[in-house]
Design a protein around this nucleic acid. Structure first.
Length: 433
RNA sequence: GGAGAGGUGGCUGAGUGGUCGAAAGCGCCGGUCUCGAAAACCGGAGUAGGUUCACGCCUACCGAGGGUUCGAAUCCCUCCCUCUCCGCCA
């Protein structure tokens, strides 16, 4: 949510900045809603004040044993007028609230202009894509050929866009998740968290998935408005919802490994092969709650924390700065980290790191107080994948595959695999069923 | 799932439908005393919105949302959450 004061005092400049990301703000509507609200609110509060004063007088008269009938008669239709003004104001506020909650964050000045991913700007590359002297197999062939990565089985059990992993592949996946968690906690100072994978509506409103993007979510049936998390950014960031933190406790750095669930509405036919795009996938997420003065520095650090994983796994990648048109709703600036996929001969997103400045914090009422200061102020919130486990695993399989179909384990990962240097996928696997 | 008890300021905890934004204690901040500290004493202190050049004034908030009333922390309804006992369960 944007600062309503900004909308009031710098409406045209806000509209111009939103236009950079392709959002057309209805300036006239904002202006008229705002002026009507101000007028109505003043009137309503005056009426309420009058009612309170008179009611108090009635109480005092009564305690003196006087007749209150004349005072009651004087109230006249005050109550009705107040009710009417109140209803009107509530309606107006609801409209304003709805408008406000649908406005995306302002892009930072450093974000390049653009419409879509074509216009993203490459920041740097790390590593060199490997030259293969044999025919490269993609991860479905490597793992799936013998049933260690089984999409048909998942389709039977559930439906499309799910995967079953078996044996060495399941273990590799687990090892990667643990490696990432240990790396982010031990090397980069994040606190490990284990959080609910089901959240309520308020949490999703706080991080900005609702009210606009409900179609991307799985909602549970039942009386409660419960949803499966699309990312653990939601539970992690909402840790500080409705809190006033001590300035000393900042930055808060949290990480969690969870499953993530996305309906992928609107992406029918995209990435149907393999496990690039699934309804359920695992992710290690990093979230930072920072002092507003430090969030931009934290964004750069957090990008480094994501990159460190790929470097340790010897996976070539590039970092791009998302252009205004490609950024998420809550982000002021986002870096995507894209790993090299030999089978597709291209870069694919494996991490996304964003500074949402005070956008989520305002929605969540997440604040901090400087020691000795009276006024609490909004914190800044950042989130980033550190990393998407499934995509990381398939990148590892493809980049480190060997001619015989086995997979070389990068040295940094070996401790999580009992020292194993190579993953062999036995020919007599589950495929023989 | 059944039965019961509760949700009040940073915490504990009072609160006959009528100056209750709310007693008291603890904690916190400032001051007096002290070389300094502790103790003691005095004082201050919630969050948000509106309005004012400003002192200030006004409004809302006692789990959430409705209702009754001239007036609701207090009465009624719905929901959420916590605790105790029973049942079930990893």
């Amino acid at each position: 949510m944007l600062d309503p004061r900004l909308l009031r005092n710098e409406l045209d400049s806000v509209a111009a900045r939103l236009a950079r990301r392709g959002y057309a703000l209805d300036v006239d509507r904002v202006r008229s809603l705002e002026s009507r609200r101000r007028e109505l609110q003043t009137r309503t509060e005056e009426l309420r004040g009058e009612r309170n004063t008179r009611s108090k007088e009635i109480g005092q008269a009564k305690s003196r044993g006087e007749d209150i009938e004349p005072l009651l008669a004087q109230m006249g239709d005050l109550g009705e007028r107040l009710d009417r003004a109140n209803d009107e104001l509530a309606e107006l506020q609801a409209s304003f609230e709805q408008l406000l909650s649908g406005i995306p964050n302002l892009p930072d000045d450093s974000v390049p202009d653009g419409n879509d991913e074509e216009d993203n700007v490459e920041l740097h590359r790390w590593g060199t894509p490997r030259e293969f002297d044999f025919t490269v197999r993609d991860h479905t062939d490597l793992g799936g050929l013998h049933g260690y990565l089984d999409f048909e089985l998942a389709t039977k059990i559930t439906g499309s866009r799910f995967a079953v992993m078996r044996g060495p592949i399941a273990r590799l996946h687990r090892a990667l998740a643990q490696f990432m968690l240990d790396h982010q906690t031990l090397e980069h100072g994040y606190e490990e968290m284990l959080v609910p994978a089901i959240v309520n509506r308020d949490s999703l409103l706080g991080t900005g998935q609702l009210p606009k993007f409900g179609d991307d979510l799985f909602r549970l049936e039942g009386e409660q408005a419960y949803y499966l998390i699309p990312t653990s950014e939601v539970p992690l960031t909402n840790v500080v919802r409705d809190e006033i933190l001590d300035a000393d406790s900042l930055p808060m750095k949290m990480t969690a490994h969870t499953s993530c669930f996305r309906s992928e509405a609107g992406s029918h036919g995209r990435d149907t092969r393999g496990m690039i795009r699934q309804h359920q996938f695992e992710k290690v997420e990093m979230v930072q709650i920072t002092h507003p003065d430090h969030s931009w520095q934290a964004l750069e650090e957090m990008r480094g924390h994501a990159e460190a994983i790929l470097q340790a796994l010897a996976l070539p990648y590039r970092v791009v700065t998302l252009c205004t048109g490609d950024m998420g709703f809550a982000a002021a600036k986002t870096y995507d980290i894209e790993v090299w996929l030999p089978s597709q001969n291209t870069w694919r997103e494996i991490s996304s790191v964003s500074n949402t400045t005070d956008f989520q914090a305002r929605r969540m009422h997440a604040r901090y107080r400087e020691a000795g200061q009276k006024k609490p102020a909004l914190v800044h919130t950042l989130n980033g994948s550190g990393l998407a486990v499934g995509r990381c695993m398939l990148a590892l399989m493809e980049n480190h595959q060997r001619e015989d179909g086995s997979i070389a384990v990068p040295e940094a990962l070996r401790p999580w695999l009992g020292g194993q240097e190579v993953i062999n996928l036995p020919q007599q696997g589950p495929a023989s069923r």
